[in-house]
């Protein structure tokens, strides 16, 4: 079967144990203000223009079949003399993705790694994720997810993974809704389901200055995790100012409402207090 893939990274070092390949799947149900992978948001292909290379020669407009609006058809890509246009998001056969990973699988295994499905939100293409995963039965597999998916889908995929990395961004429902555009009830319910499932998991918190790096939020998160023996650790991901770097090439604007300049508070002690292993990525 086919999935909408926007990248395959070969040396992912912060997406699970060992040296890993990360499969980036397009489409996400959340709209986190700090998202650093804007090409992962829409489930559809998108045109990406590297602005620094563009000579504004107009060749792309000359060949465009739909000047009234871009459909990411890709007609302009081969015609660009600067080679600065690409289409993010390609319908890819699951076997093609699996083949690329299989090629380096010995290296992944030698170094305690494997494959990680991420995005976007990988669960938006759960059948595809499972198809790739089943084509690689001997490869350590991991999913990185925001947890915003129907519980059945969530568990169905998680059960076939060796490790789940679940984002818990904000515990407060109102704040979650404000900063990610969605309610977190589903996510917190899935966390409970994951805890009950016995599947090994990690929790990841992107630390956004003033948004969720508060004592209150971190403490609330820690409390949710005290009764999960198969929780490997909590990973804190401090916000990086480069997050907005890709927006312009997609014709999008990056407008965070939080103060970007303040380094987020990365307090692992709060978790230690609750007997939870935590580290900063």
């Amino acid at each position: 079967m086919k999935g909408m893939v926007f990248d395959l990274e070969e040396f992912a070092v912060y997406d699970g144990p060992g040296i890993r390949c990360a499969v980036f799947l397009k489409g996400c149900p959340l709209r986190c203000e700090w998202c650093h992978n804007p090409e992962g948001l829409s489930p559809l292909p998108q045109r990406v223009v590297t602005q620094s290379l563009c000579a504004h020669c107009g060749q792309c407009r000359a060949v465009c079949p739909t000047p009234q609006g871009c459909t990411a058809c890709g007609a302009c890509v081969p015609g660009c003399p600067q080679g600065c246009i690409r289409i993010a998001g390609q319908l890819t056969e699951h076997e093609e993705v699996a083949a690329r990973i299989r090629r380096v699988a010995p290296l992944l295994a030698m170094n305690g790694g494997g494959v990680t499905f991420t995005g976007g939100e990988a669960l938006m293409q759960s059948d595809f994720v499972l198809a790739v995963r089943r084509a690689l039965p001997d490869v350590h597999a991991c999913i990185e997810t925001c947890g915003y998916a129907p519980k059945e889908d969530f568990l169905r995929v998680c059960r076939e993974m060796d490790l789940v990395i679940l984002d818990i961004k904000l515990v407060d429902t109102a704040l979650h809704k404000r900063y990610t555009g969605a309610d977190n009830a589903l996510i917190l319910a899935n966390l409970e389901a994951l805890k009950a499932s016995g599947i090994p998991f990690r929790v990841r918190i992107p630390l956004i200055p003033t948004v969720n790096d508060t004592q209150e939020n971190l403490e609330a998160t820690a409390k949710l995790l005290t009764d999960a023996p198969q929780l490997e650790k909590v990973e804190l991901l401090p916000y990086h100012r480069a997050a907005g770097g890709k927006y312009a090439s997609l014709g999008m604007a990056y407008r965070p409402s939080f103060p970007e300049n303040i380094p987020p508070r990365a307090d692992v002690e709060i978790f230690a207090k609750y007997g939870i292993k935590a580290g900063i990525l």
């Binding site: 070092v13 912060y14 060992g18 040296i19 900063i280 990525l281």
Partner: peptide
């Protein structure tokens, strides 16, 4: 940027 990343770079070289 951290020990985890450094270890993996070392693994890459060794590989």
């Amino acid at each position: 940027q951290n020990q985890e990343g450094m270890t993996k770079v070392a693994q890459l070289v060794r590989s």
